[in-house]
């Protein structure tokens, strides 16, 4: 049993270190979760359209050794929206395409994000924008990213330290509101999950040391077992040697 435990500890230690080196050796990024997002689109008093997104639940960033986190935005440069005009002469118009002319993401503390959400629910867009600018912990502008493999996207990235956050994503569109009497409301036709929380794993020396500690402990157990039962190991080796010799002789005899 001691031999099994020793060998197992060596296997566990070395294999864990190897998995860490392979999965995290180059800082492997992967998506952790996509917090639920609410979208709205509306016209500012000057008639230009804006699209706003905010987190419904707090974005929690945990403390884990060797992990760093990023808030990642990836979206198509054009957005499709619908406009609904209340009677008289109402109805749905769209989906109409609009290009994003400007996009920014504002990272807020969760309590500020809750206040932003109240402004969002009431449609007080200008106050929301100024509040996001004022209370932001960090902000990033969406920039065009070109890739040979996929169509160009607007992207932004915000590094996150542990804590609870919310964010506001603000897009200014090139379309203008066309009021045709009555009240006009807009809704995003397709936006998808554009904001994700990404983790980047970069193993620390401490993790490798712990893995090698486990392997070392197993090696010590194996060594102790070897010195306590040297004859057994020797017998095993002799038996293997004998089997190999017998096999060779058997093959020679058959020839």
């Amino acid at each position: 049993m001691l031999r099994s435990i020793g060998a197992s500890l060596v296997v566990i230690g070395l294999l864990t270190a190897a998995v860490l080196a392979v999965l995290g050796g180059r800082g492997t990024p992967f998506s952790v979760s996509t917090p639920p997002v609410s979208w709205s689109i509306d016209a500012l008093p000057n008639g230009s359209l804006i699209a706003v997104a905010y987190t419904e639940t707090p974005l929690e960033v945990p403390v884990i050794e060797g992990y760093s986190f990023k808030l990642q935005v990836h979206m198509q440069p054009s957005i499709r929206y619908m406009s609904f005009t209340s009677p008289p002469g109402g109805g749905a118009v769209g989906p109409a395409p609009a290009r994003i002319v400007e996009g920014r993401i504002y990272l807020l503390k969760w309590r500020d994000a809750l206040a932003a959400r109240a402004l969002f629910d009431e449609g007080r867009w200008e106050e929301l924008i100024s509040m996001a600018r004022e209370k932001r912990i960090a902000a990033a502008e969406l920039r065009m990213e070109k890739s040979r493999l996929s169509p160009p996207t607007l992207a932004a990235s915000l590094p996150l330290s542990p804590g609870r956050y919310g964010y506001v994503l603000l897009l200014r569109l090139n379309a203008t509101a066309k009021k045709r009497g009555g009240f006009t409301a807009y809704s995003i036709f397709s936006a998808g999950d554009v904001v994700t929380l990404n983790a980047v794993v970069s193993p620390t020396p401490g993790q490798y040391v712990r893995a090698l500690d486990v392997a070392g402990l197993g090696a010590i157990i194996l060594l102790l077992d070897y010195y306590a039962n040297r004859e057994e190991y020797l017998e095993g080796r002799l038996a293997r040697l004998l089997r190999r010799l017998q096999g060779r002789r058997g093959r020679e005899a058959r020839r």
């Binding site: 197992s8 500890l9 566990i12 864990t16 860490l20 060797g66 712990r210 486990v214």
Partner: peptide, 14 residues
Amino acid sequence: LYLLSFTLPLLILD
């Protein structure tokens, strides 16, 4: 061995 294969990688990681 099963319990070690479950607990030790978690302890090594964090």
